[in-house]
Design a protein around this nucleic acid. Structure first.
Lengths: 195, 195
DNA sequence: TCCCAAGGGTGCAAAGATGCACTCATGGAG
DNA sequence: CTCCATGAGTGCATCTTTGCACCCTTGGGA
């Protein structure tokens, strides 16, 4: 997956990472509204235009790009797969989401702190989770029709979000372990709690 | 002269400087033939191709680009200007050469050491001075016809080179002062010596 | 209320950087 | 001597970065 022999790819990754790190740091220092795109560009030593070449907006730099589900996996999910168990399949879908979009393990904790420290950012992040939830609810409806009530589907999505957030908390407490491990642990504990 | 507001110019200058510094360091460490363009590219974190986008060859990275006289000033010189005194005018021409091609004051000393520490580089540098000398001789001939014998013109050019080298030595001993100042001091001392 | 400065965001063309496939010269190894 | 590996140097297509002119929204002042 990593191509260290390719200068282009390497520099692109470095620049994206640098932008994210600077954005998070600026947010921690001054809050989300305390810095401009120009400030970020200066901090990351790129032009203002380049920021928009990498991210779709100011929020995206801090929160990361809007997550997108793999259409192939979505198709499998809607068809009732991969395991047939709804909870397991939703979790699998969510796990892929996290897996693909976690470029920097230890950035998760820092990023989470930055988000939670700024009211405006909490709102933006919340909006994102809302969108994801809506997507999931729709997917569940496509998959099982009316077998699941929208309320139940919504609860399911919220559970996944909660699991993610709990995993993030664990990641803060124990940054040494990979995030996916914390996520798995959160799932296990949740099962125990609900058992 | 410096445009800190322009990202392009700034980065270009930085890259060129980085390439020069790395090349000099590599030469000091391993000798001129002890490193390849690929080594330099890796050290300066650019692609091999980019090295050739900046410099015309391996030698140019260490010695700097081949100096070129300003055609306008050359025309003035050939016409007998600007002062009418041959020595003064040649010195003025040479001073311009140095002024325009000295991007980094303290690099002069380091670069000089690198050149003097490698036999091959001394040869290359010598060849350059030869070329410059030939150019000057030709210019003097165009200016004063046969009033100056080629031998005398050649001596004149050599004097200038010597002054430059002496100024470089002074620069090594006293890096705090700008190079042009050392150059002027060398000229004064030479006059005293020859008086 | 009207106006304007500031900041987010986009389109486009020019300038830079890179990868890659070449060519050419040279100094050994066999 | 011949062959071949190595490293200098070039041409060209492609991808990135940058500057710049724009547009749109918004929150204050006058």
């Amino acid at each position: 997956m990593e191509q260290l022999c390719n200068r282009r790819e390497t520099k692109r990754t470095q620049t994206a990472l640098r932008l994210q790190q600077c954005a998070v740091q600026l947010t921690i220092d001054r809050g989300f509204d305390g810095w401009t795109i120009d400030d970020l560009a200066a901090a990351a030593d790129v032009s203002r235009r380049t920021v928009f070449n990498y991210f779709d907006g100011k929020a995206d730099v801090v929160l990361g790009p809007v997550v997108e589900l793999d259409p192939e996996r979505v198709a499998v999910f809607v068809a009732g797969g991969p395991s047939g168990n709804l909870l397991a399949d939703v979790l699998a879908l969510a796990a892929d989401l996290i897996e693909e979009h976690t470029s920097d393990q230890d950035m998760i904790a820092t990023g989470r702190n930055a988000v939670l420290g700024d009211a405006r950012l909490i709102g933006l992040a919340h909006q994102r989770f809302e969108d994801i939830t809506a997507t999931f609810v729709e997917l569940v409806r496509e998959r099982d029709g009316d077998a699941y009530s929208p309320d139940r589907a919504r609860l399911l999505s919220r559970l996944v979000v909660t699991l993610f957030d709990n995993a993030a908390e664990r990641s803060v407490a124990d940054p040494g372990r990979p995030f996916s491990e914390h996520f798995d642990a959160a799932i296990r504990d949740a099962r125990d709690v609900l058992a």
